[in-house]
Design a protein around this nucleic acid. Structure first.
Length: 318
RNA sequence: GGCGCCGUGGCCGAGUGGUUAGGCAGGGGCCUGCAAAGCCCCGUACUCCGGUUCGAAUCCGGACGGCGCCU
């Protein structure tokens, strides 16, 4: 299957943005971010989203386009990304996906099932009601209506229990039923997938450096603007570090303490990403050492891509 | 030199004769529409040496180390 796009997956602070731009430059590409927080307008600084210079150099999609109060999800991302990819290919350019939200990337590689249309109001009402129940209750109820799920996942956490309940209650079919019987929402998109990884010690150093850079880049002002806009309880605001920066702004934390906490939280997040990319990527994903020279990495990726495209051209001729 | 206090896993820190304290840090893992989210799992430590006791991190003695005060 000829790949239709390139995907660069990597944990925070692993150099995806820079590499993506280097690759896009070589292949006349456009970048699609699969990052659940860089998508928000007004959180670009603290999420280390590509800056205006980078975005001027290469067209970007999926960055800074959502209101902080909006909800993003794997399904929504996948629908948007399919359009972006189609558009880029229509323009005879190369889609270069880059990001750290592995779950979003998967929604393209192994599309989620097509769900019966749910009434947003009923769904919202149900969610708020479920939010009031304690975890034990949710878990027991979800397991009763969807007994296969706990067998597969082990003891359910409340987020998954609530999701399962939402489907059982609103559609009369369990999550597992849908997964088995419903068609994928769209065909899978074949991609050349690369996983960027850094040795742990270096990775930690990069994270500390990144935190410092973000603060120097005006993170505090960004957080104050969000507070002034009254969105500190919006879905976007639980991005790493924003709570700490708010506390710093209020004088509840010293700058040193805030930075230390943010580093810890970022590392905890990076660890989860490392685990995801270690086990959840397609088996043919290629591993890259992100400490190598960006130019050489980009060179190699561009070479792989051209080879794939040439093979297709060859097949078509022959 | 004398007197007093203290000595718990990487760190903090409970525990005063017989249950895995706990927190932080660290590591591993899960993941089908909230994913920068939500979860799960992992360390038998008590400075050392003797003694008392059926049994000691917990009591007694000594050594060593730290802190404080005194001369």
């Amino acid at each position: 299957m000829t790949p239709q796009a390139i995907a660069l997956a990597g944990a925070t602070a692993t150099g995806k943005t820079t590499l993506a731009i280097a690759v896009a430059r070589r292949l006349d590409g456009e970048i699609i971010s699969f990052d659940s927080r860089q998508a928000y307008r007004g959180l670009e600084i603290g999420t280390a989203a590509p800056d205006s210079e980078e975005r001027a150099a290469v067209p970007h999609h999926g960055v800074g386009f959502l209101e902080p109060t909006e909800r993003y999800s794997a399904g929504r991302f996948a629908r948007l990304a399919r359009e972006w990819i189609a558009g880029i290919r229509d323009r005879d350019r190369t889609p270069v996906l880059a990001g750290g939200t592995g779950f979003f990337l998967r929604a393209l590689l192994e599309p989620v099932f097509r769900e019966a249309p749910l009434d947003d109001e009923r769904r919202g009402a149900l969610r708020s009601w479920l939010a009031t129940l304690d975890t034990e209750r949710l878990r027991a109820w979800a397991s009763r209506l969807d007994p296969e799920l706990p067998r597969r996942l082990g003891e359910l956490d409340r987020q998954r229990a609530a999701r399962s309940l939402e489907l059982s209650l609103l559609t009369g079919r369990s999550l597992c039923w849908w997964q088995r019987h419903s068609q994928p929402e769209a065909p899978a998109i074949p991609m050349l997938v690369y996983a960027l990884a850094l040795p742990a010690e270096l990775h930690r150093a990069r994270i500390a450096e990144r935190t410092r850079t973000l603060v120097e880049g005006g993170w505090l002002d960004e957080v104050r603007a969000l507070e002034a806009a009254g969105v500190t309880d919006a879905p976007s605001f639980n991005a790493v570090g924003y709570g700490e920066m708010l506390a710093l702004s209020h004088g509840e934390l010293s700058q040193a303490e805030a930075l230390a906490r943010i580093n810890r939280a970022t590392w905890a997040y990076a660890r989860r990403q490392r685990t995801w990319f270690r086990h959840q990527l397609p088996a043919d994903a290629m591993r890259l050492d992100a400490s190598e020279d960006v130019g050489q990495l980009a060179q190699r990726i561009a070479g792989d891509w051209r080879r794939c495209q040439d093979e297709r051209a060859g097949r078509q001729r022959g």
